[in-house]
Computed example of a mutant assay.
Amino acid sequence: MRVAIISESFLPQVNGVTNSVLRVCEQLTRHGHEALVIAPGPGPAEWSGVPVVRTPSCPVPGYRDFRVALPFPAMTATLHEFDPDVVHLASPAVLGAQGATAAAELGIPCVAVYQTDLAAYAGRYRLGLAEAMVWRRLVRVHTAAARTLAPSRAAVRQLQAHGIDRVVRWGRGVDVERFRPDRRDESLRAAWAPGGQLVVGYVGRLAHEKDLGLLTAVQELPGVRLVMVGDGPQRRQLERQLDRALFTGVLTGDRLAGAFASLDVFVHTGPHETFCQAAQEALASGVPVVAPAAGGLLDLVQHEENGLLFAPGSAEELVACVRTLQHQPALRRRMGEGTRRSVEGRTWEAVGQELVRHYRDVVAEARTPHRRAAA
């Protein structure tokens, strides 16, 4: 197949949307499909054999490392020249809306992948956009798609509640070869926690919507060492607030895998996750997860089986969960044994094949005369 991927984010920006697009590109090229990425801002013009068309963009106020697409007049011409069978809209908003319009003009079916709770983010970053306004835009884009893929049951329900039809659950894969328990590094742990403390870690963007201030209470716990892996617009503020924590910056590849496996507990605090890939990578690494009982995390964390859930926004419950795992090592070990099993079937290979089946379905539907007439 020929697949045009229109993404609101791509390298050098590293986030959940970018990482998912990278894995999709890998799976498509590995199986002989052809792909093209269209993404905003400066960056590489090619990645892993996939050409990347860069479009105009501007930085987001308060988050200058993240860029938002500006109008791209050449969208229709770019799609026409590539002549895809299907257009993949990755977390569509501004650029995705342009892509959906152009695809409709050219008669190309679209698959829209919902990944980011943009309405919640708009409120967090005080962008002057009412949540209802953001949802109206998202509804228009997703309604124009032949199928919307949502990463979790909570995300499916959220989209359906706003009147979006043709929503199917499509999860995310995890690299179980890279993220695994035997990556645990005792020398790294000794450097992090020379006193033998319980190592509690967060991995991800250091940003307002993650509610990372809740970790203030965790760093105060006796016998606990808090490790923060990642970067983002809130880093300086958090370094002041979490003054007892260790900040590693961004880690990638095997260093990231080693960091995950060297934790005793992975903690996440964000209530707006449509999935949470970092939690899935922690589980693959054999690490119990403590997370808010909200959004996509409910699909990943089975309470008292592979982790513990707390009420979103409750520092008191978060601390209680960490204390439980700190003082009950047998429970922690039992959970650790179940974490890997909970994600072993979620490889990117399996997820990629499922995605291609969705592509083929919408292409077949678009070619069926009675469906075109009904549309």
Rank of each mutant, 00 (worst) to 15 (best):
R67H: 09
G196K: 03
A294V: 04
A375T: 14
T29M: 13
P42S: 11
V267W: 08
V351A: 15
G163V: 10
L212M: 09
W135H: 02
P233S: 08
V200E: 02
N306E: 08
V224D: 02
P151I: 11
Y202Q: 01
V60T: 04
V53A: 02
D299H: 01
A279N: 02
V141G: 07
T116F: 00
P40W: 00
E8I: 04
G173N: 01
P181H: 02
T347G: 07
F310N: 01
S314R: 05
G204P: 03
D211C: 10
R255P: 05
A293P: 14
P369S: 13
T116V: 08
L246I: 09
H80W: 09
R225I: 09
R255Q: 10
Q98G: 14
V53M: 04
S20C: 10
A90E: 04
R334T: 11
R323D: 10
L298K: 13
V290A: 13
R240F: 12
R333C: 14
D243Y: 04
A130E: 11
R255N: 07
Q326G: 14
D254Y: 02
Y114G: 02
A93Y: 14
P151L: 08
E177N: 10
G313D: 12
V290D: 11
L251S: 05
V351L: 15
E316A: 15
H162A: 13
Q197C: 12
V267Q: 09
A373M: 11
G204F: 01
V265A: 03
A207V: 13
S7K: 05
V37T: 01
G296K: 00
L212V: 06
G49F: 06
R23D: 10
P288I: 03
E337L: 11
G230I: 05
Q158K: 13
G96N: 02
E105A: 15
L251G: 06
Q328G: 12
I164M: 15
G99N: 05
V343W: 00
L297C: 12
M75A: 12
G336K: 06
R341V: 06
D185R: 03
V174M: 04
D231P: 07
L118E: 07
E239N: 10
G249Q: 01
L214K: 00
E316M: 12
P181D: 00
R153D: 14
G223L: 10
T368C: 15
D231F: 01
D264V: 08
R255S: 11
V60Q: 03
R180N: 08
A320T: 08
V250R: 03
R244G: 12
I164W: 04
S7C: 07
Q328K: 07
E177R: 10
T101I: 07
A104L: 05
Y125W: 08
P329F: 07
A293H: 10
R189G: 10
V156Q: 05
T143V: 02
G258T: 06
R334S: 13
Q115R: 09
Q237E: 12
T101A: 15
R340L: 01
R360S: 12
T324F: 09
F260V: 05
V319P: 13
P40A: 13
V267M: 08
Q160E: 15
L256D: 03
A191Y: 04
M1A: 14
A130K: 09
Y125I: 05
V3D: 00
F82C: 15
A315T: 00
A4P: 14
A93S: 13
V141F: 10
L263C: 07
G96Y: 01
L79K: 01
R67W: 06
V290R: 04
R205F: 06
